[in-house]
């Protein structure tokens, strides 16, 4: 199908985009990569009268790495962030997660910030946002505000963003030095939306055969309504890396998530899958020796 007619606005500067959105936001939508919005328009699940296309707005296409975070502008494509070596060096979780976001052709156009604004519970980057304590930089007619990722998501496809606000950038927080991360998921085909998945950050103390887990945090994909951080520390703290026992993890994970059933999998299947993926992720992280160079935070 084809989209219903709309007025296309193509601002070149951020203040212009904000001004347009202030006037039409109530009956308009921000258009970033369009990889979620255009399918919705094509299927006529939404018919906004205005689209504020931010692709030409100057200054939104940069990735900046600082001591405390990786700041990603609103028009940075998934593929651009995935290939960003400096961002990978300081926060490997970004690339680890992005490799699971759709297929390359979608990643070439879709934006990381757009996927966070879209707030799909099956999206990888919203879950990375919460587990890295990201900050959402929003701007609107009432000025700028910063929203902690943990307070940004309200429900499936719902955020605290007002209709006349747009996200200028997201700052992903760098993790403590030595934190090990991974992103694992299970999808019917690599690149499809996952049946379940998680981003995991593990802190290990000591080295070699004496190393033990100090703490672990995970955030899940497709098994919670909104991305939330599940602190696994109680179930894993003190486990020796050389011969860990993850049996306490299962109960903790299963209690923390509430998967919906759909045509692809039942709720129980997803619950069991999430627990198993958590165990596998923990094992891979505690047996691997690669460590992320953490930030100053």
């Amino acid at each position: 199908m084809k989209p219903a007619p709309f007025v296309h606005h193509s601002p070149r500067a951020l203040d212009e985009a904000v001004a347009v959105l202030a006037e039409v936001g109530h009956d308009g939508k921000v258009l970033a990569g369009g990889q979620s919005l255009i399918p919705v328009l094509n299927m006529r699940l939404a018919q906004p009268a205005h689209l504020v296309d931010i692709n030409r707005v100057a200054g939104l296409d940069t990735v900046t790495v600082t001591d405390t975070h990786v700041r990603v502008g609103a028009i940075v494509r998934h593929a651009q962030l995935e290939k960003h070596d400096e961002a990978y060096a300081v926060l490997p979780l970004l690339r680890q997660a992005l490799r699971n976001v759709a297929h390359p052709a979608i990643r070439n156009r879709g934006t990381t910030v757009g996927s966070i604004a879209h707030a799909d519970a099956a999206g990888e980057m919203p879950s990375v946002a919460v587990v890295t304590d990201a900050v959402i930089e929003a701007v609107g007619p009432r000025g700028r505000r910063e929203i902690a990722a943990g307070e940004f998501f309200e429900g499936p496809l719902q955020t605290v963003l007002e209709a006349d606000e747009l996200v200028e950038a997201v700052r992903f927080g760098r993790l403590a030095p030595g934190t090990r991360t991974t992103f694992v998921e299970s999808a019917r085909r690599h690149g499809d939306y996952a049946l379940a998945g998680l981003g995991l950050a593990v802190d290990v103390e000591g080295a070699g055969a004496d190393a033990v887990v100090r703490s672990a945090r995970a955030s899940y994909v497709s098994v919670t309504d909104i991305p939330v951080v599940v602190d696994l520390t109680d179930a894993v703290a003190g486990q020796p890396v050389s011969s860990p026992d993850w049996s306490a993890v299962e109960d903790l994970v299963q209690a923390a998530i509430a998967p919906e059933a759909d045509i692809h999998a039942s709720s129980d299947y997803r619950r069991a899958l999430a627990a198993e993926l958590t165990r596998r992720a923990l094992t891979s992280l505690t047996t691997e020796t690669i460590e992320s160079t953490g930030g100053a935070a």
Binding site: G34, Q35, D53, A79, I106, R109
Partner: peptide
Amino acid sequence: DPMRSCLMF
């Protein structure tokens, strides 16, 4: 770069 022409105006 490959992109979906059905998802671009």
